[in-house]
Design a binder for these strands. Structure first.
Lengths: 111, 111
DNA sequence: TTATTATATCAAGATATATTGATATACAGA
DNA sequence: TCTGTATATCAATATATCTTGATATAATAA
């Protein structure tokens, strides 16, 4: 019980303690449902690297997955508890530059 | 500008991503102004270890110091910005066990 | 001054996390 | 079935952090 609560808190703060994940979270918060390949083309990062970080953001409660065919679309989970919501709002307010979005997935062409 | 905001955010989440620091923050939040020696006697940890973690909590904006003679008393900083305040409240609500307080410093004998 | 106490810092080893490249799995369409 | 695409996972290396013990600095009291 005690250990679980602490572990959950540390999992949450650990997910937030990485520049790559903060940028991904901000990008997904801004652009909505995106798949790994969209992030790959937008950020120019290796797929394995993105997949790993997205998994951490998912398992720490920040993202939900929506499967459509071969694609998995990741979005900010709703609703978020107060702490995670405050964290997302803090990240939303961060004055950092993000790449242009380049969608490769087929479900959305509003590039 | 961009880098500073990101670094400040990561410094904050990094401070929260450690079980020892979470326990110290909760303890100080509960008991108020404490010095390193009070934490040493209460937690039974080495002074160098405590000093290091307190420094990280101080430099990440969670604690203030109040010097009195040879003692340095650490308290939760007020006011805290929204994100740090939410983090402290989250930690306050964590159902984890803390040690009994054993004050060694002279300014307070209400053990 | 000297001794004592409180706190800070350093160096080394242990532990944890990030990155990369390769491989594995899952699914859609021909 | 086979092919191509999307995603997940693994192993090895690099990097960062934590802990400990020792040392250094600062302030008080004798």
């Amino acid at each position: 019980m005690n250990k679980e609560a602490m572990d959950d808190f540390l999992k949450t703060t650990g997910a937030l303690y990485d520049e790559t994940r903060v940028r991904l979270l901000k990008f997904i918060d801004r652009h909505g449902a995106l798949c790994i390949c969209d992030l790959e083309s937008s950020f120019g990062m290796l797929q394995s690297r993105l997949s790993r970080h997205i998994k951490i953001l998912k398992e720490s409660g920040f993202l939900t997955v929506q499967k459509e065919g071969r694609w998995s679309y990741y979005s900010i989970r709703t609703p978020l508890d107060r702490f995670r919501l405050q964290a997302v709002e803090e990240i939303r307010a961060l004055p950092i530059e993000l790449p242009e979005i380049k969608r490769l997935s087929r479900s959305c062409y509003i590039d």
